[in-house]
Design a protein around this nucleic acid. Structure first.
Length: 420
RNA sequence: UUGACGAUGAAUCCAAUG
């Protein structure tokens, strides 16, 4: 059973779920009865691939075979709920564990903390930390890193910095993730000096920067448009034995594109293949966005086809970039056609996609007509957001129809959308 | 040394003076 599971785990980690499943079924035929670990391993594999149906079926199967879910199995459920943003249910599951005397350890609590942090609910996150301490569970480096990321994403860098000091005085060693989180926080705030200070600190504490740490810094310079510095950092990371990965390249691609150097980006993609780094959907989409922004729509469309040929399925963002490209070219009909095409590919347009259409129709001076798109959005199950309204308000303002603009502001407020 | 948690990359609107 253990041997099988080691194999199973390997297959799951490699995303070879079909093989894993085959192995699982094979075990049954050999008369090896799967234990809770086998089931959990496979369930986790399905969860990570987003195949929740299969995961749930497996859960039912294990229960029906009298295999009791344990702390790990429950935790996976908790994590799934947290990632879906269903925090009440997630909390309930943890309580359920307690009631069933499956003593939840630090991990399910970390999941809850992470869930709340990702929603920006820092008070609730801290409440969970208090609760875990109350239950006699010590926060670990992950707990702190999760909280740290939460504060960073809220832009509360003073609190973030304090938290790192706190964990050190609590006797916990910040690791590469902790530091990378903090470095990212400062980078996103544009505080490079601070970011560099903490890179120095991590090194002096014997924590080696890894690819993620460098990617964070590289991305900062790419966003700033300082491609020289970005490329220099890449050279530095290579000299340290860190291989640039698809994320490194994506940042560079975006940097070049935003500098208007789409040609360089195209060359870089070839360089990726050469280095054996396979571009993924994001990498391709980044280049695609560059092409669209330059109005090179023929190239853009053929790039989308290339993606599909490579088995990389364009997502909403990918398609939306092309939709926006057509919109900005004034080819609204083509944009609409593409929206139908994406639907037929099983990709639903979202608010952003619609906002693009709204924007281009406003630019034509037909704000009234653009406004009517809201109905279409609603019937597609989408709610207009602050950008939708900003676009329309701006449209009316430019047409000199201030009354209508003001009406719209009132309308958005009445819908509970805060003007920014 | 069989399973669960944390960090990095891509899309839409608007803004003063000129």
């Amino acid at each position: 059973t253990v041997t099988c599971n080691i194999l199973l785990n390997g297959l799951c980690k490699k995303r070879a779920l079909k093989k894993a499943e085959a192995l699982f079924r094979g075990m049954g035929k050999l008369g090896i009865s799967p234990d809770v670990i086998i089931y959990s391993t496979l369930m986790d594999g399905f969860c990570k691939k987003g195949e929740m149906e299969k995961a749930q079926n497996l859960l039912r199967e294990m229960i029906s075979k009298g295999v009791e879910p344990d702390v790990v199995t429950y935790s996976m459920l908790v994590d799934w709920l947290c990632k879906k943003g269903e925090m009440e249910k997630a909390e309930k599951s943890v309580r359920e564990m307690v009631l069933k005397r499956l003593k939840p350890n630090v991990i399910p609590y970390n999941m809850l903390v992470n869930g709340f942090c990702k929603q920006g609910e820092m008070e609730k996150a801290e409440r969970i930390v208090r609760e875990m301490v109350f239950r006699g569970i010590k926060p670990n480096v992950v707990t702190y890193s999760v909280l740290l990321d939460g504060f960073c994403k809220q832009g509360e860098m003073e609190r973030a910095e304090k938290l790192v000091r706190e964990m050190i005085s609590d006797g916990l060693e910040p690791d590469v993730v902790t530091y990378s989180t903090l470095v990212n926080g400062f980078c996103k705030k544009g505080e490079m000096e601070k970011a560099e200070k903490f890179v120095k600190e991590m090194v002096s504490r014997g924590v080696k920067p890894n690819v993620v740490t460098y990617n964070t810094l590289v991305d900062f310079f790419c966003k700033k448009g300082d491609m020289e510095k970005a490329e220099k950092l890449v050279t530095e990371m290579v000299s340290l034995g860190l291989e640039p990965d698809v994320v490194t390249y994506s940042s560079l691609l975006d940097g070049f594109c935003k500098q208007g150097e789409v040609g360089k980006a195209e060359i870089l993609v070839n360089g990726m293949f050469f280095k054996g780094v396979e571009p993924d959907v994001v990498a391709f989409s980044t280049l695609l966005n560059g092409l669209c922004k330059q109005g090179k729509m023929e190239k853009a469309e053929s790039l989308v086809n290339e993606m599909i040929c490579r088995g990389l399925m364009p997502n909403v963002k990918t398609y939306s970039m092309v939709v926006d490209g057509f919109c900005k070219q004034g080819e609204i009909e083509k944009a609409k056609k593409l929206m139908n095409e994406m639907i037929s590919m099983g990709v639903k347009p979202n608010v952003v996609t619609y906002n693009m259409l709204v924007s281009s129709i406003c630019k034509e001076g037909a704000t009234e007509k653009a406004y009517k798109l809201i109905h279409e959005m609603v019937s597609a199950g989408l709610e207009p957001d602050v950008v939708t309204y900003n676009t329309l308000v701006s449209g009316f303002c430019k047409q000199g129809e201030m009354g209508k603009a003001e009406d719209l502001v009132r309308e958005m407020v009445s819908k509970g959308i805060k003007p920014n």
